[in-house]
């Protein structure tokens, strides 16, 4: 995995607009693809993109180089933001955010977001099907099967041991057999 921004740069992105801009430009598409694998509403996807980066700004000071690289950390932040929102939605709620992402979109932007969402239809079906799994098993399978992280990266993102991650993946796969293609393997390395 790449680790371009150093720990020092990560510490700055919460209070230095230039440092933040570099991080944002490098990762905005990764974040939007992550969201498109979980959400099928373009306006909500725009809101969540804003929410994920607001969470990045708020929690950049918690980044520790020894616990994973910035992309692994970002996946962890994005997961928390998106999952909390999906849980709120399941209860009919929507959190109000400091920045309403959807208010910043024009029709061309919505078309871009929808194209990204369309491209991830299979991932979202899988994501919905994972509802039957426990939270812990689901977290591992999501990152492997939807986001194509390696099992080592997943362990780092979730802060669990490699052996635990493997065991959860094994269990989740067994339960999800019918939704996963037989050739499903985590080959893609994190960008």
């Amino acid at each position: 995995m790449t680790s371009k921004p150093t720990g020092g740069r990560m510490a700055r992105i919460g209070h230095d607009p230039i440092a933040f801009e570099g991080f944002y430009r490098e990762h905005v598409h990764l974040v939007q693809r992550f969201i498109a694998r979980r959400v099928d509403d373009a306006h909500l996807a725009a809101d969540l993109t804003a929410d994920v980066f607001l969470a990045v700004i708020d929690s950049a000071h918690t980044y520790r180089a020894g616990r994973g690289d910035p992309v692994q950390w970002l996946y962890g932040v994005a997961r928390n933001v998106v999952n909390s929102e999906l849980r709120r939605q399941a209860r009919g709620l929507r959190a109000t955010s400091r920045i309403a992402g959807r208010a910043l979109t024009g029709s061309a932007d919505i078309a871009d977001i929808e194209a990204r969402i369309d491209a991830e239809a299979q991932a979202r079906r899988l994501h919905r099907a994972m509802n039957e799994l426990s939270d812990g098993d689901r977290a591992v399978l999501e990152l492997v099967a939807l986001d194509h992280l390696s099992i080592q990266d997943v362990a780092t993102v979730l802060g669990i041991r490699l052996g635990t991650a493997r065991m959860r993946l094994h269990r989740a796969r067994r339960r999800m057999q019918r939704h996963l293609s037989p050739t499903e393997t985590p080959t893609e390395v994190m960008p």
Partner: peptide, 14 residues
């Protein structure tokens, strides 16, 4: 445009 506008708003927050 969305990504640029969002960047502007986020930089204000920062």
């Amino acid at each position: 445009t969305f990504e640029e506008r969002l960047l502007t708003e986020l930089k204000k927050v920062v």
